[in-house]
Design a protein around this nucleic acid. Structure first.
Lengths: 106, 106
DNA sequence: TACTTGTGAAACCAATCGGTTGCGCATATA
DNA sequence: TATATGCGCAACCGATTGGTTTCACAAGTA
């Protein structure tokens, strides 16, 4: 199933999971201990994250370690790039200057 | 109403609206012309974007211009910062190297 | 072999989402 | 004043979401 990465990071629990496994790969059970939900709920979140390739499962015996695919996070960064151009531009700085002048006039 | 910016950018139409008004402030009618939906649907999206302060309305006669608050986008950038640290780190590069070696062994 | 452990999948549920239509209300304009 | 325009809000609707409980199954362990 094709998934949207932005929809994947919309959920706060999912974002917390991402932060958690960014440090090191973890099993669903280990992850669930950090939250006030069932393992199954975490499993569902991991499914979403896997479907959009933000996370990759690695079977090890009967345990499955989920590892963050940090490269995929760059997709968000890439989308932000167009706005970074704006907020770093002089036009934006001019805009802020005009706003400040406007407020001073009041 | 308090809103989550990540939930706000989860919707593709909403992201398109953000890109659209990044160039210049626009009215709901003008925005709606760019999409295959009603003005009311766009109005709802703008409400969500306004509630999380990604967008600001500016009344002008009977028209309302919606302007992107580019500064708010930095919040996403800020969340990404922790991952940027990882993907720019040598540990990550070492990780990739190990992965490559592993594949070559097969 | 019997039991325990780690896991995903299915069925269900209330809440939320993104869309529509219909409405009311200002603000131009004739 | 009457009419047209731009807009937000409310009510409604089907689809999706995030959670739960129950179950099945493979992998270790007694």
């Amino acid at each position: 199933m094709r998934r949207d990465i932005f929809q994947a990071i919309a959920d706060p629990t999912r974002r917390a999971i991402i932060v958690l496994i960014a440090v090191q790969a973890m099993t669903p059970n280990a992850i669930a201990e950090h939250f006030d939900t069932t393992r199954q709920a975490v499993s569902k979140h991991l499914k979403v994250l896997t479907e959009c390739e933000l996370v990759q499962p690695q079977q090890q015996g009967r345990e499955i370690y989920y590892k963050l695919q940090i490269d995929k996070m760059k997709e968000i960064d890439h989308w932000l790039e167009q706005f970074r151009k704006i907020w770093e531009s002089r036009f934006d700085q001019l805009d802020n200057l005009l706003e400040t002048l406007k407020k001073q006039q009041k």
